[in-house]
């Protein structure tokens, strides 16, 4: 099937539709190409698209300190949260001390984005190690901010640049970010103030979580079959025959993305 949009554009537009006016969305600045596209670039483009359409009062909090950056001014992506390029990015506020490293715990952030190497059917995320924690086969970046992301932010989007069996596993090697262990009731007992994972975006599909906190396939992207999703997921997904196709972006949305939000093709390539 001939598509007139890219996978990144599809995910960006679907994501944008889930934001509400007046919310505060946070994203860090990830490094590494695939990770950066999914955790940083797509979320930034989606938040800006929401601001230009149904959510003009949505606030973009980039890297926890830069408020409503003018992304169209970018000529290249800052390489890290330490980068000099961020310093002169036009924006509304640069705040070092608030919400800073700590005040996000009072619930200032309505939604945020994270990633990891493994996700289980309860939405728990691992970004710490493959194998035993004491003697890992692969030591990864470590939990960093993931405990807070999935515990204290309003809701969390899990952005997975790879949809493979080894990434979606029945059991993960380290719970670095907590989803719904024991369902929504189980999560409640843990005393976490945020509502946890709400959706997972992958190159093949969008997952959501049902009222018990169990993951299900919400939609499958154009050109991808249900069997592709099943074959690349390491746990049972049930019958996917009634799952709808992920809705395509409109021409207006694509025009906004290409002409206004990302004119230099910095975010979505």
């Amino acid at each position: 099937m001939e598509k007139h949009f890219t996978l990144e554009e599809l995910l960006t537009v679907r994501l944008a539709h889930t934001f509400h006016n007046g919310e505060v969305g946070f994203t860090g600045l990830a490094t590494g190409k695939a990770a950066a596209t999914y955790i940083t670039n797509i979320p930034l483009a989606a938040m800006q698209l929401a601001r230009l359409t149904h959510a003009p009062d949505l606030t973009v909090l980039l890297a926890g300190w830069c408020v409503n950056p003018d992304l169209s001014a970018l000529t290249r992506l800052p390489s890290s949260e330490y980068g000099n390029e961020l310093l002169n990015l036009p924006c509304e506020a640069q705040m070092t001390t608030w919400p800073g490293p700590w005040s996000h715990r009072i619930g200032e952030i309505d939604f945020a984005f994270c990633s990891g190497v493994q996700v289980d059917p309860e939405g728990n995320v691992n970004c710490t190690c493959i194998g035993a924690h004491e003697k890992p086969k692969v030591a990864l970046v470590g939990p960093i901010f993931l405990p807070e992301h999935l515990a204290v932010f309003g809701r969390e989007y899990i952005m997975m640049p790879h949809h493979e069996k080894r990434c979606f596993t029945e059991k993960i090697d380290h719970i670095s970010g907590v989803g719904f262990p024991g369902g929504r009731a189980g999560r409640k007992e843990l005393g976490l103030t945020g509502s946890g994972p709400c959706k997972i975006f992958t190159p093949l599909c969008i997952f959501s979580f049902d009222e018990d906190g169990k993951l299900f396939v919400e939609s499958i992207h154009p050109g991808v079959t249900a069997q592709d999703v099943i074959d690349n997921t390491g746990f049972a997904l049930g019958d996917l025959s009634a799952v709808p196709e992920t809705a395509a972006p409109s021409d207006e949305e694509l025009a906004l993305l290409r002409n206004n939000i990302d004119p230099n093709r910095i975010l979505l390539g």
């Binding site: 710490t128 405990p147 515990a151 719970i175 670095s176 907590v178 007992e189």
Partner: peptide, 11 residues
């Protein structure tokens, strides 16, 4: 107050 269920506290 936010380490419930997290392996960071377990390990």
């Amino acid at each position: 107050y936010f380490l419930g269920g997290n392996d960071v506290a377990r390990d």
